[in-house]
Design a protein around this nucleic acid. Structure first.
Length: 311
RNA sequence: UAACCGCUGUGAUGCUA
């Protein structure tokens, strides 16, 4: 059993689910370990109907397996099955609750997410952070602050990052900075969110200082700084960032395109647009906006008709 | 029983409304 289980697991890690399943079915005897292995790998690879069928045959269904299936449903946004499974689970651990809460938030059902949250017997830091972030990013600043200050015994970088973007969206840059200064251990994400806060509020000098003092940067931090210059029409600075960044993605290209949109330089914008690898709907829209904002009705109509997708 | 490692539920960037 042990050897065959090892083979089975090797197949699942390689994504060869068919072979894993054949291995499982050829086993003369099975035990809990190999059952768990096959079912959880079905879940992780999106074979949920298979997972469910196997799971129903097992004499005892471990909470871990039910959680795996639940997160499988959540991943493919199968709300109905997820909620049904959740209701019928013998226990709701923080992991299962958080999975459902995230799914509900994703669906815009904040009230339902809240009610799952309130019923949790043990609210761990991750579930608190999840709800905090939902408040913070949906404009419920008061609720976010109150949760953060009154109901959370401890905070980590994730909690603080949520608060920074909440304050940032409300234009409270100094409160964002105040909270940032309380983080015991900052990381790239918290630095970038403070950077983004300054950028969103047009504090380009503070943004620049933050950006320069960052000990590490990734494409998101470069993009954030680029957006700051792009949105405020700082052509030279934007060019400088764009030329010096180690890598570029669609976001970088689109941000750079908007510099020319704002400057009314349609030809340069279009040149940029043509060079964007892997165009997505946002960059198509950005080009459309460039025509529309600058009074080129005919061009914008033509561009609209060539767009692969409209939203 | 403990330590370490790996996986797993939460955080940061672009157009428009």
């Amino acid at each position: 059993i042990v050897l065959q289980t090892m083979v089975l697991v090797a197949f699942t890690r390689a994504g060869l689910m068919r072979a894993a399943k054949d291995t499982f079915e050829s086993m003369p005897e099975i035990d809990l370990v190999c059952c768990n292995a096959i079912v959880s790998s079905f879940c992780m690879n999106g074979y949920l109907q298979e997972a469910k069928r196997f799971l129903e045959k097992l004499p005892c269904q471990s909470l871990d397996l039910l959680n795996s299936l639940l997160s499988g449903y959540a991943r493919e946004r199968n709300i109905e099955n997820a909620l049904c499974l959740f209701k019928n689970m013998p226990q709701h651990d923080p992991c299962a609750c958080t999975t459902v809460i995230v799914m509900l938030i994703h669906e815009g059902k904040l009230t339902e997410a809240q009610s799952v949250f309130y019923k949790m017997p043990h609210k761990d830091l991750i579930s608190l952070n999840t709800i905090l972030h939902a408040y913070a990013s949906n404009g419920y600043l008061y609720e976010a602050v109150s949760l953060f200050e009154r109901e959370m015994p401890v905070h980590d970088r994730v909690s603080v990052t949520a608060m920074i973007s909440a304050f940032g969206q409300e234009g409270e840059t100094s409160k964002a900075k105040e909270i940032f200064d309380q983080i015991p251990q900052t990381d790239l994400v918290s630095w970038t969110s403070l950077l983004s806060c300054y950028v969103q509020n047009g504090c380009l000098e503070s943004a620049r200082q933050i950006f320069e003092s960052m000990t590490q940067r990734n494409i998101l931090s470069w993009n954030t700084m680029l957006c700051g210059y792009a949105q405020s029409g700082h052509l030279e600075e934007a060019k400088n960032i764009f030329m010096n960044m180690p890598q570029r993605d669609v976001v970088s290209w689109t941000a750079f395109l908007t510099v020319f949109c704002n400057a009314g330089d349609i030809d340069s914008a279009f040149e940029i647009f043509l060079r964007i690898p892997q165009k997505d709907s946002v960059c198509w829209n950005a080009m459309l906006t460039t025509y529309a904002r600058n009074g080129h009705l005919e061009e914008s109509k033509r561009h609209f008709d060539t767009m692969p997708k409209h939203n």
